[in-house]
Design a protein around this nucleic acid. Structure first.
Lengths: 233, 233
DNA sequence: AAGCCTACTTACAATATTGTCAATATGGCA
DNA sequence: TGCCATATTGACAATATTGTAAGTAGGCTT
């Protein structure tokens, strides 16, 4: 009768991974407030001090969760960027794909749930992303076209902010704005946004004589003013 | 000695307003988790059951907070739209101004903090915004150009999502992406984004023959496909 | 097979936080 | 001036949740 094993002893690595998985799943359902040690432990069939044993505190769990999400984002982005290779047209689509699967929403929630300290890991990941994107852009750029690193940083910023905003408020805003819901709608928005961005990239890639930085004629297609504004201060 | 009034008796309206102000201020400092009845009450020098008396529950307080923020957003947007009037160039700048002062961040936090029910008020506000924006666009549009309401809805969605993403992750992302911080940086980003959007609006305003709705040629400048994608499903 | 490391458990502590209830006093109003 | 509605208070209840401590047991090494 008592063939039920009283205890399952995992390796520390396995335990950590399973706990992170459970916490992630719970957060996906109930939002960041749903990460309660007792509940997460219950989902795994363990007692909640196990979580404290492996992560030190609830904050430690959230930190680990955030770090893992950041690494996942980085890996997906790197994969996407290298998959697109020189085919510039597809890069943006690949990048948007990297944010899919609730990853952006997870990161957004974690950013709100966290108390906001110890961003060392996240900072490193972000810098690596910016660096890689910039190298990609310089590789792709036709000779004679200088890519401003500020421009890369701004693009990374815009894409990230938009993806996050879309992830958090997507469902609510779409419903309230009267747009259809579901994955198709989000995908359609991403296509539209990618098109918008690609237009900017096309203009960057076009070499402009340095003296022609005047005002764009508003009636014709505004092709000048392609660079991002120089951030003063 | 005891000239200190033992009790200050406010009107119900005043009490509600003061409580909302205090909760708002506290949230601005400590995030959405900082809205604790005891702390908010302490800031006002009252006891925490007063809050429960006026708002029923903590959820009620957060609902009221959200509603007030939504109304504030609506008022600011309406003011901005009517201030810009027919001058299309400035509309986007005005709209971005409406999101300033931490309003977007407040709304974003509230969206995360709330349990997500009873969106009636917010839905009404959103619909009114969409309706007003659409009327503005139809007024401004040159004769012979039909403005698709789906396009308006998508634009409202994009602007809102981006403003929210910028509000939540702005500071963090800017720092991590290596962009300068401060109001100037945010303003520069808003200028750049407004420019991006204006380009889209310019293309919309250009009347297209209805038969030219085919596939865009990928190699040349993608000038077709200017409308937002039709959302299937 | 013995022993050790440590993952795991049970029980408990500590605290914070929302919410209830009866009593009080305050300002308007008759 | 006296009454009344209700804003406000203080004390208490209920519960949830993080964290601690000491002991137990599982599996790997020797």
């Amino acid at each position: 009768m008592a063939s039920v094993p009283k205890r399952i002893r995992r390796t520390a690595e396995d335990a950590r991974r399973q706990i992170l998985d459970a916490a992630e799943a719970r957060m996906a359902q109930t939002g960041p407030a749903g990460i309660r040690l007792q509940d997460v432990a219950a989902d795994l069939g363990i007692s909640h001090p196990v979580i404290l044993h492996h992560f030190g505190s609830r904050e430690g769990l959230i930190r680990a969760l955030t770090n893992r999400a950041m690494v996942e984002l980085k890996d997906k982005l790197m994969l996407a960027l290298h998959a697109a290779e020189v085919k510039t047209e597809n890069i943006l689509g690949e990048v948007f794909n990297a944010f899919r699967g609730g990853l952006a929403q997870r990161l957004a929630w974690l950013a709100v749930a966290g108390t906001g300290e110890d961003h060392a890991q996240q900072d490193m990941v972000t810098l690596e992303i910016v660096r890689t994107v910039h190298e990609m852009r310089m590789t792709v750029a036709p000779p004679g076209v200088a890519i401003d690193e500020k421009d890369t940083k701004s693009i990374v910023y815009l894409v990230t902010a938009t993806a996050f905003g879309d992830a958090i408020f997507g469902a609510q805003l779409r419903k309230r704005a009267g747009l259809p819901e579901g994955a198709a709608a989000s995908s359609a928005f991403q296509l539209w946004f990618a098109e918008l961005l690609r237009r900017h990239l096309d203009e960057i890639a076009r070499p402009v004589p340095p003296s022609a930085a005047g005002e764009p004629s508003p009636t014709t297609t505004p092709r000048a003013k392609s660079r991002l504004p120089e951030n003063s201060a």
